[in-house]
Amino acid sequence: MSSVASRSSARRTPWRTISTAFAQWFDSDYTSDGPEKMRQEPDRVDVVRCLPFIFLHLGCLGVIWTGVSSFAVWTAVALYFVRMFFVTGIYHRYFSHKTYSTSRFGQFLLAVFGGTTVQRGALWWAYHHRHHHQHSDEAEDAHSPHVHGFLWSHIGWITSRRNFPTDYSKVKDLAKFPELVFLNRFDLLVPLLFAAGIYGLGALLATFAPGLHTNGLQLLVWGFFISTTALFHGTACINSMAHLMGRRRFKTTDDSRNSFILAIITLGEGWHNNHHRYQSATRNGFYWWEMDITYYVLKALASVGFIWGLKAVPSSVLNEGEEADHRASILAAQRAALAHPEFSAFKKVVPAAAAIALATVQASSVQVPKRPERAALHRDVTERTHDIDPQA
């Protein structure tokens, strides 16, 4: 009898898992056995969890039927960068690290804007990012390329059931706001409304601005599917590549790195080693030459009063970075001298040659004063100084 029951239970388990995964598309807090049990599951790719990503990528192929227009392409580009700011400036620098402040209504608007990125809810995003900093490049880090490999850190980790639930105990400062919990729980709502809005805009333009040569489906493909897919991979590059490529200024406990290329792609998030050294700063580009577009936009929002209390990088951290850069420059010069000994001899010759050349030029410009005639022996001394070149 028990063996029959166990076989019946085994038959029900796959269906139960699949039905739970589908239910979570509409209610991300729904679990059949509790979120803690899901988080204890081993890491593995869940096929049902992959379907949204497959659908998103397949949607890009719609361009075969809808075609292309300049307006649609530029809309996709604009929505990529605008929503990249929503990821970096809102999900990351506000909800994850609270590097600035805003009103409660402003906070709600930020969560709605962040929802258009189609990267789950603000509380889920913040929970995972805080967990990442706590265990960066350790076994518990959900998306460390050093622990799990490049592909898993880029996209695999988000398809695992264990990483799906939000641990609200790790974001208590945010979970006390029911409106944020609502948006996080029903995280499909904002993306659906956003996609519908893009389609509606395209349909209106097809009717009232036919010269733009776009329509609802075309704008949906370019403005939602293509732009969102590019946005996802741009964001994921920080997980997968910012711990592999670039330069380490600060000696952090992880392998975070600074990359100008990633900073361009992600509007400033590429200064990842800076960020891991001091997470509470509003800016990731600590120095003026490190481009951080997200920070510039946040400064603009602060100037109009929508946000305030932007947190600066402590001078001690800035000095530490400058000293590290100085030491790195000296070491690089020493390595270059060892690798190319002819340069060392050249460096000794150049200063000496320059000194000889300068002395020769100065000597050739000297004008020896003529011996004064007897009648001029009692001239004013100022007259005599005009006869002598100041370089002599």
Results as ranks from 00 to 15, higher is better:
residue 202 G to K: 08
residue 30 Y to N: 09
residue 217 L to K: 09
residue 323 E to R: 13
residue 126 A to P: 05
residue 311 K to S: 08
residue 378 H to M: 06
residue 127 Y to E: 10
residue 390 P to Y: 09
residue 272 H to Y: 05
residue 216 G to C: 08
residue 288 W to F: 08
residue 337 A to E: 11
residue 222 W to E: 13
residue 186 F to R: 08
residue 97 H to A: 13
residue 236 A to V: 01
residue 238 I to Q: 00
residue 142 A to N: 01
residue 114 G to F: 13
residue 256 S to H: 09
residue 202 G to D: 10
residue 295 Y to M: 02
residue 362 Q to V: 04
residue 299 K to A: 10
residue 217 L to C: 12
residue 91 Y to C: 15
residue 323 E to I: 10
residue 335 R to E: 15
residue 297 V to H: 03
residue 123 L to W: 03
residue 121 G to K: 11
residue 8 S to E: 12
residue 320 E to D: 15
residue 130 R to N: 06
residue 289 W to A: 02
residue 310 L to Q: 07
residue 181 V to I: 07
residue 292 D to R: 00
residue 51 L to P: 04
residue 373 E to W: 07
residue 192 L to D: 13
residue 190 V to E: 11
residue 351 P to Q: 07
residue 31 T to Q: 02
residue 114 G to R: 03
residue 351 P to I: 11
residue 358 L to Q: 09
residue 133 H to N: 11
residue 121 G to I: 10
residue 103 S to E: 09
residue 353 A to K: 12
residue 209 A to V: 09
residue 278 Y to P: 06
residue 366 V to M: 15
residue 134 Q to N: 04
residue 9 S to P: 01
residue 59 G to I: 04
residue 329 S to I: 15
residue 367 Q to V: 10
residue 167 D to I: 07
residue 11 R to D: 14
residue 275 H to A: 06
residue 214 T to H: 05
residue 233 H to T: 03
residue 76 A to Y: 04
residue 89 G to S: 06
residue 226 I to C: 07
